[in-house]
Simulated scan of single mutants.
Amino acid sequence: MAAYRYCEAVTGLQARNFSYGIRLLPEPKRLAMSALYALARRVDDIGDGELSPERKAEQLGRTRALLDEVRTGSVGEDDTDPIKVALADAARRFPIPIGGFDELIDGVEMDLKGVEYRTFDELKVYCRCVAGSIGRLSLGVYGCDDPELGAQYADTLGLALQLTNILRDLREDAANGRTYLPTEDLVRFGCEEGFGAATPAAGADFAGLVAFEAQRAQAAFEEGLRLLPMLDRRSRACTAAMAGIYHRLLGRIAAEPQSVLRGRVSLPGWEKAYVALSGLAGGRS
């Protein structure tokens, strides 16, 4: 179906870390996952785009209306929005909890409002919205031996991935006026001045802050990866590949904290491919 091909192209170009894992799935699940990520990308692009806050809110409202159409089964194959068509077809084939997208939109709306997080518990709510939601949506495609427990692990794995993203993007987010790390942590490590420079502020224990947050992310990885034995082989490989790429990224950041102030830390393509193949072979990286 052309709608799915469009979603696959979006995923391959704009969600490269995730595309390595998605490639390991059998075609029906791979296509459904591409639809999920294409819509998630659209929501993220609305939040990160150049539109006014009012226009962004309007676009997010339209996306919620799209989700209502998917829920009610009122999307026809002649609809001109390929992402909507693909998602509607995927929702007919798999028990996808479409409400997860509403949570994702809730998280983007937090960004639009400039919400700051005083405590880690407050940050976890945001992470559940923007990352845990994707894990739970994905679980609808994968299938799971214990859906309730699996959803909890998927949430925790999403937290691990989002914490890694937050550390990776400290400088970029600061340039956009955003700081996601909890205020209580910034105060504890003397980093209240933020991350707008390539070197930490005088007196700041930046390395200590990164180590502290990396330990949190590591603990979330260890718990969230308990999901793997609950999945079939190919879904397990997909999840292991995606999580493995971010886990390695976290290791790089923890080993050299100031690298995130110099630019975005990433893994070379060959290493991502290696992690993906390790996941297919049953390993964890």
Rank of each mutant, 00 (worst) to 15 (best):
C7S: 12
L13V: 11
Q14P: 11
R16Q: 14
N17T: 05
Y20S: 07
I22P: 00
I22A: 09
R23E: 06
E27P: 13
K29G: 00
R30V: 10
L31E: 05
M33N: 07
S34N: 11
S34W: 01
A35H: 07
A38E: 14
A38V: 14
L39H: 12
L39I: 07
R41L: 04
R42T: 13
V43C: 03
V43M: 06
I46A: 04
G47V: 03
D48H: 12
P53M: 11
A57P: 09
E58Y: 14
E58V: 10
R62A: 15
T63C: 13
L66W: 09
L67F: 10
E69M: 03
V70T: 13
R71P: 08
G73I: 11
V75N: 00
G76C: 03
E77G: 01
D81K: 02
A88H: 04
D89L: 05
A91S: 12
A91K: 04
F94R: 06
P95K: 13
P97K: 07
G100V: 02
D102Q: 03
E103F: 09
E103P: 05
G107A: 07
G107C: 08
V108W: 04
V115Q: 12
E116R: 15
T119R: 07
E122T: 05
K124Q: 15
V125E: 07
V130D: 02
A131K: 06
S133V: 07
L137V: 00
L139E: 00
V141C: 01
G143R: 05
G143I: 00
C144W: 06
D145P: 11
D145I: 12
G150H: 06
G150I: 00
Q152P: 08
T156Q: 15
A160F: 11
L161M: 15
Q162H: 06
T164R: 12
L167V: 08
R168M: 08
R171F: 13
D173I: 06
A175H: 11
E184F: 06
D185I: 02
C191Y: 08
C191R: 05
C191V: 02
G194R: 04
F195M: 06
A197G: 10
G203P: 05
G203R: 12
A204W: 02
A207H: 10
A207R: 12
L209G: 01
L209K: 01
A211G: 11
F212H: 15
Q215C: 10
Q215K: 15
R216L: 00
A217V: 01
Q218L: 07
A220S: 10
F221I: 05
G224Y: 04
L227W: 06
D232F: 05
R234E: 13
S235R: 04
S235Q: 06
R236L: 07
I245T: 03
Y246S: 00
L250V: 02
Q258W: 14
S259D: 09
L261Q: 13
L261E: 00
R262W: 13
R264Q: 14
P268Y: 09
P268N: 03
G269A: 15
W270M: 08
E271F: 15
E271W: 12
Y274S: 11
L277H: 13
S278K: 07
G279C: 07
G279S: 02
L280H: 01
